[in-house]
Design a protein around this nucleic acid. Sequence first.
DNA 1: CCCAATTTGTTCGTATGTATC
DNA 2: AGATACATACGAACAAATTGG
Lengths: 260, 260
Amino acid sequence: MPPATTRSELRNGGRRSRPQQVAEAIKDWVMERGLQPGDRLPSEADLIERFAMAKGTIREAVRILEAQGLVKSRTGPGGGVFVHQVSEDRAAALLGNYFYFRQLSIDDIYTVREALEPELAASLAGRLDAGQMAALEAVVARYAEPARTPEEERAQHLDSLRFHALLAEMSGNALLRFLIRFTANMLSDVTVSRQLYAPPNPELWKSGRDYQSRLLAALRSGDRDGARAVMAAHMRNAHRLMRAQEAAVTRRFLPEDGMI
Amino acid sequence: MPPATTRSELRNGGRRSRPQQVAEAIKDWVMERGLQPGDRLPSEADLIERFAMAKGTIREAVRILEAQGLVKSRTGPGGGVFVHQVSEDRAAALLGNYFYFRQLSIDDIYTVREALEPELAASLAGRLDAGQMAALEAVVARYAEPARTPEEERAQHLDSLRFHALLAEMSGNALLRFLIRFTANMLSDVTVSRQLYAPPNPELWKSGRDYQSRLLAALRSGDRDGARAVMAAHMRNAHRLMRAQEAAVTRRFLPEDGMI
DNA sequence: CCCAATTTGTTCGTATGTATC
DNA sequence: AGATACATACGAACAAATTGG
């Protein structure tokens, strides 16, 4: 943040608009001071004075940061603009926008899942407590019976994606966790909007269930390589089945999370 | 986009500010019409009229979309607000914000790289033309000589990250491409900010070079499994070396007075 | 329950900057 | 160079939300 009443010092490399410059300056200021989520930024009035700019300009700057999920503002006494930790939903939505004009195929997504999911499984082997194992088993129980209609089949498929999301949540690796949940969501967007799901198939259901139970067993017993291998086989199988339904990922902007 | 002069129809789930609602409405409008990059949105004046809102409100809405990389505005005649394809840099920056308060360790990043990079190598085996192979060889040539100073070592390390980024660029899988480049960039951010790089080590240099040349050979000959295996070994080796460096650095910075 | 203070949110009128013809 | 069309910025006033008395 520049000293009071100067609008110089706003490093303007390439014809950036004033709100953009101000947003950058605020971001730098937050970094330099090591501000944490919940910390309050100067009030709008303060910013107007310090940057010597009009209210609208300052507001646009704050909007930029807000759109990126970096700050949050509240009205009223004790209100103001606050540093905010970017939520996972927001980050996923923003990254999803990147792929809006870059059609991803089922193959593209599964190539990444096939690489990441086995590592996740391996990293969790022997590290889950009873509560976590129970939560996983509860999700698996949701498809204890083979689907009889396409709607049930679709619901089970989405449940199995939830299984992977839940597993990811148990990882201590924030990057791996985010990527696995992101890819699973991209995939579930495809199946929902394109109504892309397999017709009821008892044999498929049986093999899927088989993978899940073998995975849970390996996780419980701490069999790292076993968990990895089971998950890898599971992914290859799922990929093969989905490839049959090959379709382009729907073009759709992911909604931002409304409020935290 | 709502019909002219109505501000109803703005689906407001949970207390979103008007600019946010307008931004969402514009986004929906772009989706519904299937607008493409370069297509022009209604002028600011049009938007003011159609949404029946003040200039400032509309401008904040446009800023939100601009901050997300979805639109771009130009002044002057023929100017206006245009649909824009989110750039890779922008997407990477926005995703990077997500990890600002979620410190990633070297281990976290390498776990993902170890999973993804071998798949990239496998997918490219036998699919690169002469020009692409030449480009890769040119980058490798940049560290033809072992580094003699820590600065040279660091420069070579960054060059090798560029090698991976270049390789990623050749993938037809937009998701894999993005993720590999993103992880490589995160890694170089971490190593730079923590000044985390190995001291000159001819043996390390030799093994790194060995991996690269074996990888290029496998890529040229179309040896899919060979490329995957070489890259996997390369990643494991790099991970091991970086982990040692990280441990060394943190040890060096251990406080002498009991502070964290 | 109402009132007052505080802070962000919205509006309008006007002026300036910028690119095209 | 001048006219035109567009975004950009300013400033003052008013509205809404939240907190505390």
